[in-house]
Design a binder for these strands. Structure first.
Lengths: 130, 130
DNA sequence: TATAGGCTTCCAGTTGCTGGAAGGGCAAGG
DNA sequence: CCTTGCCCTTCCAGCAACTGGAAGCCTATA
């Protein structure tokens, strides 16, 4: 099938599919006689796999590792779990950081009357070290 | 003072200070006779202001708006509050998204025994639509 | 005077795409 | 047979927000 159908079926934009091919994340597909890329069902499965992985926040590099494991029938599930566990830890860390930001910002916003006058605790906070 | 001291005092890397100048976020400082940038106390305050704003996750563009308001003694605090409020909403949205990711990923990780065998619910989830 | 550091500019690379230009392929309609 | 329109190809540029490095000048100190 052409890249357009592979795009629809995998849920990845055609541009992105080509980009993944350029950067080596996915192997170049077969080519039809007219030079068009020709994707198989298996290719589409892999593209979907990558889309889901990216959707869960894995980096392209991590997706590459996960895809290798996905294709390796002799893999050890512990290798997969290690990657996922590490990512989970990073997500937790990111959530923690955002919640801290949120808390600080929330205090500042709450203390600002937000009217026509110029005095503003938000600006004071940003100037003073918040 | 030279850029090195301005860097130490503001907490921003010298590289970043020059970058902010290049992109117009901060005004070019005075220059000494030898061509070195020459920062005032006020400059350092503004750099700190930007650092704190970036630290709270405001985009460079938002920082630019906040800095203008900071410098405008006739500002309306409602303008500041609007920017901060919008950013707060975005942070909340991001936290929500991350928590959703986290939940999905957590389930997958929890169901994977993570040993030497190849069968792996994480890979199955990624292949099947998680 | 030699050396070590700080300063200058400019160019390139990072991550993960996305948009656009220029051109060829292909099926349907007039 | 030719046009229209959509799909495909490649390549180049740009987004955010820096960061690293090269080449070269300035300055302070031993």
């Amino acid at each position: 099938m052409n890249i357009g159908e592979a795009s629809t079926r995998s849920g990845l934009p055609a541009k992105t599919i080509r980009y993944y091919e350029d950067t080596g994340l996915i192997a170049p597909p077969a080519r039809a006689e007219n030079g068009y890329r020709d994707y198989s069902e298996t290719d589409v499965h892999k593209l979907s796999f990558v889309r889901h992985s990216r959707g869960l926040g894995f980096s392209v590099d991590e997706c590459s590792q996960l895809l290798s494991l996905y294709e390796d029938k002799d893999r050890q599930s512990s290798d997969v779990k290690a990657i996922a566990q590490k990512h989970l830890t990073e997500i937790d860390e990111k959530i923690r950081e955002l919640q801290e930001l949120r808390s600080t910002l929330h205090h500042l916003v709450n203390n600002c009357h937000g009217d026509g006058r110029p005095d503003c605790p938000i600006l004071e906070g940003l100037a003073g070290g918040a």
